[in-house]
Design a protein around this nucleic acid. Structure first.
Lengths: 168, 168
DNA sequence: TCATAATATCTCGACGTCGAGATAAAAATA
DNA sequence: TATTTTTATCTCGACGTCGAGATATTATGA
């Protein structure tokens, strides 16, 4: 069965038979799957008044464990976004009552970022729904296939992170 | 060897042991690999005065084969973008002399989109460099692993496209 | 044919992101 | 301690994208 990327690969093979296309069926498919699944996932977020960026902030806080408090620099580093984008996201989340910004007694340059009680409720609900949707998405693969795919993606991710990411 | 997503998965496993995480190691890694590789790839585009969106338009035109002419609706459909985003991209590409907008004799509502001679030169150069970079990125995998990974991603893509895309 | 509906694209205003520079606090050093 | 450098965050203006509505053209059918 051919997917969209297979058709693209065939076209390039005809038009540019001189160019090796080893990376295309992997990199382009990762991107394609990411793009196609973004819509349904973001619809889910929007049902709870969140966009994808705001969800990512809440999720990072939530999985850091109690007391759900992280410094802004760690947030925008982990999220791979600009510090000014984070500022905007935090302002929106604070206005929505999902986070608090307590003073940082150890460093007056920062105010910490902390999930509010309501923020915990919201992210717990939305995360469970998000995972349910993602599990459904990979439902077209057998358990063995999921394991194999996750393992290969992990190896590729390790290579990519070594090449392009900080120590993380 | 653990990657970034493996650490995220471990955190969620501790914080939400009740939530099944089957999709996470696949969906999150596809996204992670896409995000991490976007930077280097876009740097390459910028060396030639293009952003990623403009590259995608030129690439779609180029791989359609001679006479490198496509209707706007087919472009924004294939590229999964809004028609108004396409309008902006086309205006920039036309100003840069990379495309022409010949009249469509069969439908006066559209002007066609056609690669200029210079546009063909540019996309041929940039596409070859892009593929070289992508081939290098998957270089951390053996040939067998690349084949297996591409095959599993294709199966997942087929499932995702059936669920979320038009006939394409 | 003429009016109406459907289609293709463009215009406009709003949004989220970014990079550069500003601001404030902490750390290093004289 | 006073000064300089570094660090952490925020402010500001610009960019690419989007959705809704506007415009122009083609298709439908009374």
């Amino acid at each position: 069965m051919a997917d969209h990327v297979a058709r693209i690969e065939a076209q390039w093979g005809r038009e540019r038979p001189d160019v090796p296309l080893d990376g295309l069926p992997i990199i382009a498919r990762a991107r394609r799957i990411t793009l196609l699944t973004r819509g349904p996932i973001e619809s889910l977020f929007e049902e709870h008044g969140l966009n994808a960026g705001e969800f990512d902030v809440l999720a990072t806080l939530r999985r850091s464990g109690k007391p759900y408090t992280v410094r802004p620099t760690e947030l925008f580093t982990q999220l791979m976004i600009n510090s000014s984008s984070l500022t905007d996201r935090l302002n929106r989340l604070e206005k929505a009552g999902l986070i608090d910004r307590p003073v940082n007694r150890e460093d007056g340059r920062s105010r910490l970022v902390q999930l509010s009680r309501h923020g915990v409720q919201v992210i717990d609900t939305v995360f469970a729904k998000d995972m349910a949707l993602e599990n459904e998405i990979v439902g077209c693969l057998t358990m063995d296939e999921r394991k194999a795919l996750a393992g290969l993606l992990r190896k590729l991710a390790v290579g990519v992170e070594a090449k392009y990411a900080g120590t993380d």
